[in-house]
């Protein structure tokens, strides 16, 4: 029953179960996640050697096991790890996305921790977002002192949890499952604390690795895993979290109004479910079909942007490598 202890009351809050997200939100995040995961899979098949196959699986099991390690904080709560930021710092963003996808997938399939249909959203929140922000920030510390690197890594870990919480709240709100003015401050508040545990363990683990096997986290290794463009990615997401979180928490009505104005949601809470009208004859009415198609088009656009971004990142990574070898 070791595993049961891994999922203390604090963890599952980012593992959304099925039924809590609307079809449109589910669909959009699946498409985004599929885009990222298939790029990650293709890149790993091309760029890495064959020893990666067993290594990735064992490291996924490592993340799983590392989530069991906790430390008492106060009042019966304990700090522990989600692992997304640690994975991206020690493996690079693409490998981390694949490893976290396997972890989140197995948690859903083996333990029903997180839903099947909403797995796309869960992977996005806990695997992709964390990998992008975590690596982006850590990459910016390349060449700095050990102390700076650890501080940045800790900050990246904290922000990765906050980004996940932010994105989870937005998904719940867009699905009409929660009201923004309550779910957002609650989620962000709880995860600001959980994030501290994440930050401390991530920095502690990195300090240990730097001491024992400095070669694994050398600047050359880290720059080889991703080019400077990642710094931009990390900065953009950080900025989004830093700006969006307080804005939405302090003035959720504002965000809601913006969303309405731009047609993300039609009119407050009950509208997302208008996507699936309960008055038409079986199958999907005209309105719902058009909404879903609109959602799909939106997702395809996002996926396209992701692919362009990936190509851009790849080019910049290879030019960085060239600089290093010159």
């Amino acid at each position: 029953m070791v595993i049961a202890s891994a999922f203390s009351p604090l963890t599952p809050q980012l593992h959304i179960p099925d039924g809590f997200l609307s079809t449109a939100v589910t669909l959009v995040f699946w498409l985004i996640t599929i885009a990222f995961v298939s790029i990650a899979a293709r890149r790993l098949q091309h760029d890495f050697d064959e020893r990666l196959a067993p290594l990735m699986g064992i490291l996924a099991a490592f993340i799983f096991a590392a989530q069991m390690i906790n430390f008492p904080v106060a009042g019966g709560t304990s700090g522990h790890l989600l692992g997304g930021a640690l994975a991206t710092i020690i493996l690079g963003p693409w490998a981390a996305i694949l490893v976290m996808t396997a972890v989140i997938g197995a948690q859903a399939i083996l333990f029903q921790d997180g839903g099947l249909l909403v797995m796309g959203a869960n992977i996005f929140n806990m695997g992709i977002l964390t990998a992008l922000i975590g690596f982006g920030l850590y990459r910016s510390a390349a060449g700095r002192s050990r102390r700076t690197k650890l501080l940045v890594a800790g900050a990246a870990a904290w922000l990765s949890v906050m980004a996940g919480a932010l994105s989870t709240s937005l998904q719940l709100w867009l699905s009409g499952t929660s009201t923004l003015n309550i779910v957002m401050p609650a989620m962000l508040g709880v995860h600001a604390l959980i994030g501290v545990g994440e930050a401390l363990i991530t920095a502690g683990a990195l300090a240990f690795i730097m001491q024992t096997r400095p070669d694994l986290l050398s600047d050359a290794e880290v720059t080889q895993r991703g080019g400077r463009a990642w710094i931009v990615v990390g900065a953009v997401i950080t900025l989004a979290v830093i700006l969006l979180a307080p804005l939405a928490s302090a003035n959720p009505d504002g965000l809601e109004r913006v969303a309405e104005d731009y047609g993300f949601i039609n009119a407050g809470l009950d509208s997302p479910y208008q996507i699936l009208p309960d008055y038409t004859i079986p199958l999907l009415g005209e309105t719902s079909l058009s909404t879903i198609i609109a959602g799909a088009i939106g997702a395809v656009v996002v996926a396209g942007l992701v692919i362009l971004l990936a190509q851009f990142l790849r080019k910049s990574a290879s030019s960085d490598q060239q600089l290093a070898t010159d």
């Binding site: 899979a41 990666l52 990735m56 099991a61 997938g105």
Partner: peptide, 15 residues
Amino acid sequence: PQPLVATLSFMYRYL
């Protein structure tokens, strides 16, 4: 994708 399936397989074995 194959890398994902292989990752899942080894992960399950070493969990």
